[in-house]
Design a protein around this nucleic acid. Structure first.
Length: 263
DNA sequence: GAGCTCGGAGGATTACAAGC
DNA sequence: GCTTGTAATCCTCCGAGCTC
Protein backbone atom coordinates (compact mmCIF):
# COMPACT_ATOMS: atom_id res chain seq x y z
CA UNK A 1 0.00 0.00 0.00
CA UNK A 2 2.62 2.48 1.08
CA UNK A 3 4.81 1.23 -1.76
CA UNK A 4 2.47 2.86 -4.25
CA UNK A 5 2.55 6.11 -2.41
CA UNK A 6 6.32 6.27 -2.69
CA UNK A 7 7.78 8.79 -5.11
CA UNK A 8 8.45 7.13 -8.46
CA UNK A 9 12.10 8.10 -8.51
CA UNK A 10 12.80 6.54 -5.16
CA UNK A 11 10.97 3.38 -6.09
CA UNK A 12 12.98 3.12 -9.25
CA UNK A 13 16.21 3.70 -7.31
CA UNK A 14 15.37 0.95 -4.89
CA UNK A 15 14.47 -1.40 -7.68
CA UNK A 16 17.79 -0.74 -9.42
CA UNK A 17 19.67 -1.26 -6.20
CA UNK A 18 18.03 -4.58 -5.48
CA UNK A 19 18.68 -5.57 -9.05
CA UNK A 20 22.37 -4.87 -8.53
CA UNK A 21 22.31 -6.92 -5.35
CA UNK A 22 20.75 -9.84 -7.15
CA UNK A 23 23.27 -9.62 -9.98
CA UNK A 24 26.17 -9.38 -7.57
CA UNK A 25 24.90 -12.35 -5.64
CA UNK A 26 24.49 -14.43 -8.74
CA UNK A 27 27.96 -13.51 -9.97
CA UNK A 28 29.54 -14.51 -6.70
CA UNK A 29 27.63 -17.77 -6.72
CA UNK A 30 28.74 -18.52 -10.26
CA UNK A 31 32.34 -17.47 -9.59
CA UNK A 32 32.09 -14.91 -12.35
CA UNK A 33 34.82 -12.24 -11.97
CA UNK A 34 33.26 -8.91 -11.19
CA UNK A 35 34.09 -5.59 -12.71
CA UNK A 36 35.83 -3.08 -10.28
CA UNK A 37 32.54 -1.25 -9.87
CA UNK A 38 30.59 -4.39 -8.96
CA UNK A 39 33.24 -5.43 -6.44
CA UNK A 40 32.84 -2.06 -4.76
CA UNK A 41 29.10 -2.59 -4.65
CA UNK A 42 29.59 -6.01 -3.19
CA UNK A 43 31.84 -4.63 -0.48
CA UNK A 44 29.27 -2.04 0.29
CA UNK A 45 26.64 -4.74 0.42
CA UNK A 46 28.69 -6.78 2.86
CA UNK A 47 29.21 -3.75 5.06
CA UNK A 48 25.51 -3.12 4.95
CA UNK A 49 24.80 -6.70 5.92
CA UNK A 50 27.15 -6.43 8.89
CA UNK A 51 25.51 -3.21 9.98
CA UNK A 52 22.09 -4.81 9.64
CA UNK A 53 23.23 -7.73 11.72
CA UNK A 54 24.47 -5.37 14.40
CA UNK A 55 21.21 -3.49 14.30
CA UNK A 56 19.31 -6.74 14.71
CA UNK A 57 21.39 -7.64 17.71
CA UNK A 58 20.82 -4.20 19.19
CA UNK A 59 17.09 -4.51 18.70
CA UNK A 60 17.17 -7.98 20.23
CA UNK A 61 18.97 -6.67 23.30
CA UNK A 62 16.43 -3.87 23.62
CA UNK A 63 13.58 -6.34 23.39
CA UNK A 64 15.25 -8.65 25.89
CA UNK A 65 15.45 -5.70 28.26
CA UNK A 66 11.77 -5.01 27.80
CA UNK A 67 10.93 -8.66 28.43
CA UNK A 68 12.98 -8.78 31.61
CA UNK A 69 11.28 -5.58 32.75
CA UNK A 70 7.92 -7.14 32.01
CA UNK A 71 8.69 -10.21 34.11
CA UNK A 72 9.42 -7.92 37.05
CA UNK A 73 6.02 -6.28 36.82
CA UNK A 74 3.26 -7.69 39.03
CA UNK A 75 0.32 -9.54 37.44
CA UNK A 76 1.59 -9.49 33.88
CA UNK A 77 1.77 -13.23 33.31
CA UNK A 78 0.45 -13.84 29.82
CA UNK A 79 -0.78 -10.29 29.58
CA UNK A 80 0.14 -8.60 26.33
CA UNK A 81 1.92 -5.31 26.84
CA UNK A 82 3.40 -2.91 24.33
CA UNK A 83 6.81 -1.40 24.99
CA UNK A 84 5.22 1.89 25.92
CA UNK A 85 2.91 0.14 28.37
CA UNK A 86 5.83 -1.76 29.89
CA UNK A 87 7.70 1.49 30.44
CA UNK A 88 4.65 3.20 31.92
CA UNK A 89 3.78 0.33 34.23
CA UNK A 90 7.39 0.01 35.33
CA UNK A 91 7.44 3.66 36.22
CA UNK A 92 4.22 3.31 38.22
CA UNK A 93 5.49 0.21 39.95
CA UNK A 94 8.74 1.87 41.01
CA UNK A 95 6.80 4.85 42.33
CA UNK A 96 4.54 2.57 44.37
CA UNK A 97 7.54 0.70 45.75
CA UNK A 98 9.18 3.93 46.83
CA UNK A 99 6.02 5.02 48.61
CA UNK A 100 5.88 1.69 50.40
CA UNK A 101 9.52 1.99 51.37
CA UNK A 102 8.97 5.43 52.89
CA UNK A 103 6.00 4.15 54.86
CA UNK A 104 7.94 1.16 56.16
CA UNK A 105 10.84 3.39 57.20
CA UNK A 106 8.48 5.58 59.17
CA UNK A 107 6.98 2.58 60.92
CA UNK A 108 10.46 1.31 61.68
CA UNK A 109 11.47 4.61 63.27
CA UNK A 110 8.32 4.66 65.39
CA UNK A 111 8.99 1.16 66.64
CA UNK A 112 12.60 2.06 67.42
CA UNK A 113 11.46 5.03 69.50
CA UNK A 114 8.94 2.84 71.26
CA UNK A 115 11.57 0.25 72.16
CA UNK A 116 14.00 2.91 73.34
CA UNK A 117 11.36 4.40 75.58
CA UNK A 118 10.56 1.13 77.27
CA UNK A 119 13.99 -0.42 77.54
CA UNK A 120 15.27 1.53 80.52
CA UNK A 121 15.91 5.20 80.07
CA UNK A 122 19.41 6.62 80.35
CA UNK A 123 20.21 9.63 82.56
CA UNK A 124 20.27 11.80 79.47
CA UNK A 125 16.91 10.47 78.41
CA UNK A 126 15.57 11.04 81.92
CA UNK A 127 16.77 14.62 81.74
CA UNK A 128 14.95 15.09 78.46
CA UNK A 129 11.79 13.62 79.93
CA UNK A 130 12.03 15.96 82.91
CA UNK A 131 12.47 18.92 80.60
CA UNK A 132 9.39 17.85 78.72
CA UNK A 133 7.45 17.57 81.95
CA UNK A 134 8.55 21.03 83.08
CA UNK A 135 7.52 22.46 79.77
CA UNK A 136 4.13 20.82 80.13
CA UNK A 137 3.71 22.36 83.59
CA UNK A 138 4.66 25.78 82.26
CA UNK A 139 1.98 25.43 79.61
CA UNK A 140 -0.60 24.48 82.20
CA UNK A 141 0.35 27.48 84.34
CA UNK A 142 -0.01 29.78 81.40
CA UNK A 143 -3.45 28.41 80.65
CA UNK A 144 -4.53 28.87 84.26
CA UNK A 145 -3.26 32.43 84.25
CA UNK A 146 -5.22 33.19 81.11
CA UNK A 147 -8.32 31.71 82.66
CA UNK A 148 -7.78 33.83 85.74
CA UNK A 149 -7.50 36.97 83.64
CA UNK A 150 -10.78 36.14 81.98
CA UNK A 151 -12.53 35.66 85.29
CA UNK A 152 -11.09 38.89 86.62
CA UNK A 153 -12.34 40.92 83.71
CA UNK A 154 -15.74 39.30 84.03
CA UNK A 155 -15.87 40.29 87.65
CA UNK A 156 -14.88 43.84 86.84
CA UNK A 157 -17.85 44.04 84.55
CA UNK A 158 -20.09 42.75 87.27
CA UNK A 159 -18.76 45.26 89.75
CA UNK A 160 -19.38 48.00 87.26
CA UNK A 161 -22.99 46.90 87.05
CA UNK A 162 -23.29 46.92 90.83
CA UNK A 163 -21.93 50.43 91.06
CA UNK A 164 -24.44 51.72 88.49
CA UNK A 165 -27.46 53.69 89.97
CA UNK A 166 -30.15 51.55 88.38
CA UNK A 167 -31.43 49.07 90.92
CA UNK A 168 -30.99 45.44 90.07
CA UNK A 169 -33.10 42.53 91.18
CA UNK A 170 -30.40 39.94 91.30
CA UNK A 171 -29.01 38.19 94.31
CA UNK A 172 -25.79 39.75 95.51
CA UNK A 173 -23.14 38.40 97.81
CA UNK A 174 -20.83 40.62 99.74
CA UNK A 175 -17.56 38.87 100.27
CA UNK A 176 -15.10 39.95 102.93
CA UNK A 177 -11.77 40.87 101.46
CA UNK A 178 -9.04 38.57 102.66
CA UNK A 179 -6.87 41.39 103.78
CA UNK A 180 -6.04 43.02 107.06
CA UNK A 181 -7.99 46.13 106.20
CA UNK A 182 -11.32 45.50 107.88
CA UNK A 183 -13.60 47.63 105.72
CA UNK A 184 -12.84 46.17 102.36
CA UNK A 185 -15.59 44.08 100.84
CA UNK A 186 -15.96 42.43 97.51
CA UNK A 187 -19.34 42.45 95.85
CA UNK A 188 -20.33 39.63 93.56
CA UNK A 189 -23.60 39.89 91.71
CA UNK A 190 -25.42 37.41 89.55
CA UNK A 191 -25.55 39.23 86.30
CA UNK A 192 -28.81 39.61 84.36
CA UNK A 193 -27.10 38.03 81.45
CA UNK A 194 -26.77 34.83 83.40
CA UNK A 195 -30.33 33.97 82.54
CA UNK A 196 -29.82 34.16 78.82
CA UNK A 197 -26.13 33.92 78.16
CA UNK A 198 -24.09 30.85 77.52
CA UNK A 199 -23.54 28.02 79.91
CA UNK A 200 -19.97 29.13 80.51
CA UNK A 201 -21.09 32.47 81.95
CA UNK A 202 -23.51 30.78 84.35
CA UNK A 203 -20.78 28.45 85.37
CA UNK A 204 -18.49 31.38 86.04
CA UNK A 205 -21.09 33.00 88.24
CA UNK A 206 -21.68 29.78 90.10
CA UNK A 207 -17.96 29.33 90.65
CA UNK A 208 -17.67 32.85 91.94
CA UNK A 209 -20.47 32.27 94.43
CA UNK A 210 -18.89 29.05 95.62
CA UNK A 211 -15.59 30.82 96.06
CA UNK A 212 -17.29 33.61 97.96
CA UNK A 213 -18.92 31.13 100.33
CA UNK A 214 -15.61 29.42 100.92
CA UNK A 215 -14.08 32.78 101.62
CA UNK A 216 -16.73 33.54 104.17
CA UNK A 217 -16.16 30.25 105.90
CA UNK A 218 -12.45 30.89 106.12
CA UNK A 219 -13.06 34.36 107.45
CA UNK A 220 -15.39 32.96 110.06
CA UNK A 221 -12.77 30.55 111.24
CA UNK A 222 -10.14 33.28 111.42
CA UNK A 223 -12.09 35.84 113.27
CA UNK A 224 -14.47 33.75 115.27
CA UNK A 225 -16.45 36.84 116.07
CA UNK A 226 -20.18 36.62 115.48
CA UNK A 227 -20.56 40.33 115.18
CA UNK A 228 -17.89 40.75 112.59
CA UNK A 229 -19.44 37.89 110.67
CA UNK A 230 -22.70 39.69 110.55
CA UNK A 231 -21.05 42.92 109.46
CA UNK A 232 -18.66 41.58 106.87
CA UNK A 233 -20.63 38.81 105.18
CA UNK A 234 -24.28 39.47 104.65
CA UNK A 235 -26.64 38.69 101.92
CA UNK A 236 -28.53 41.84 101.20
CA UNK A 237 -30.97 43.22 98.70
CA UNK A 238 -29.64 44.88 95.54
CA UNK A 239 -30.67 48.32 96.64
CA UNK A 240 -28.66 47.84 99.81
CA UNK A 241 -25.65 46.70 97.91
CA UNK A 242 -25.53 49.67 95.62
CA UNK A 243 -25.69 51.98 98.63
CA UNK A 244 -23.05 50.10 100.54
CA UNK A 245 -20.57 49.63 97.76
CA UNK A 246 -20.71 53.07 96.27
CA UNK A 247 -19.60 54.43 99.62
CA UNK A 248 -16.60 52.21 99.78
CA UNK A 249 -13.44 52.10 97.70
CA UNK A 250 -13.75 48.34 97.30
CA UNK A 251 -13.82 47.98 93.58
CA UNK A 252 -10.57 49.66 92.84
CA UNK A 253 -8.62 48.90 95.97
CA UNK A 254 -9.41 45.25 96.27
CA UNK A 255 -8.26 44.64 92.72
CA UNK A 256 -4.77 43.53 93.63
CA UNK A 257 -5.89 41.50 96.58
CA UNK A 258 -8.45 39.57 94.60
CA UNK A 259 -5.67 37.77 92.86
CA UNK A 260 -4.84 36.14 96.15
CA UNK A 261 -8.45 35.41 96.97
CA UNK A 262 -9.13 33.93 93.59
CA UNK A 263 -6.00 31.85 93.56
C1' DG B 1 38.36 4.66 10.19
C1' DA B 2 35.62 1.10 12.35
C1' DG B 3 31.98 0.35 15.32
C1' DC B 4 27.98 1.96 17.69
C1' DT B 5 23.74 4.56 18.26
C1' DC B 6 19.84 7.01 16.69
C1' DG B 7 16.06 8.46 13.88
C1' DG B 8 13.34 8.12 9.66
C1' DA B 9 11.10 5.34 6.12
C1' DG B 10 8.79 1.43 4.57
C1' DG B 11 6.70 -3.09 5.01
C1' DA B 12 4.38 -6.86 7.68
C1' DT B 13 1.29 -8.26 11.18
C1' DT B 14 -2.50 -7.85 14.26
C1' DA B 15 -6.64 -6.03 16.39
C1' DC B 16 -10.82 -3.81 15.92
C1' DA B 17 -14.78 -1.36 14.17
C1' DA B 18 -18.08 -0.60 10.47
C1' DG B 19 -20.72 -1.94 6.53
C1' DC B 20 -22.89 -5.53 3.91
C1' DG C 1 -20.05 -14.21 9.29
C1' DC C 2 -17.28 -12.03 5.81
C1' DT C 3 -14.94 -8.14 3.84
C1' DT C 4 -12.70 -3.91 4.16
C1' DG C 5 -10.50 0.09 6.07
C1' DT C 6 -7.69 1.84 9.66
C1' DA C 7 -4.76 2.33 13.58
C1' DA C 8 -1.14 0.49 16.34
C1' DT C 9 2.93 -1.95 16.83
C1' DC C 10 7.03 -4.13 15.50
C1' DC C 11 10.91 -5.17 12.53
C1' DT C 12 14.34 -4.18 9.03
C1' DC C 13 16.99 -1.17 6.25
C1' DC C 14 19.63 2.85 5.63
C1' DG C 15 22.20 7.05 6.33
C1' DA C 16 24.12 10.36 9.55
C1' DG C 17 26.54 11.52 13.55
C1' DC C 18 29.31 10.34 17.55
C1' DT C 19 33.02 7.92 20.09
C1' DC C 20 37.17 5.58 20.74
Amino acid sequence: MEYFMMPTEKALQQFKKSEKDVIGGLCSLANIPLSPETAQDQERRIRREIANSNERRRMQSINAGFQSLKTLLPHTDGEKLSKAAILQQTSDYIFALEQEKTQLLQQNNQLKRFIQEFSGSSPKRRHILEEEKAEELRREMLELRQQLDKERSARMILEEQVRSPAPTHHPTVIVPAPTLTPHHVTVVTMSPASNTSTVSTSRQNLDTIVQAIQHIERAQERRGSAEEERRRAVIVSPAHVSMDTTGSDTASDSEGEEDCSMN
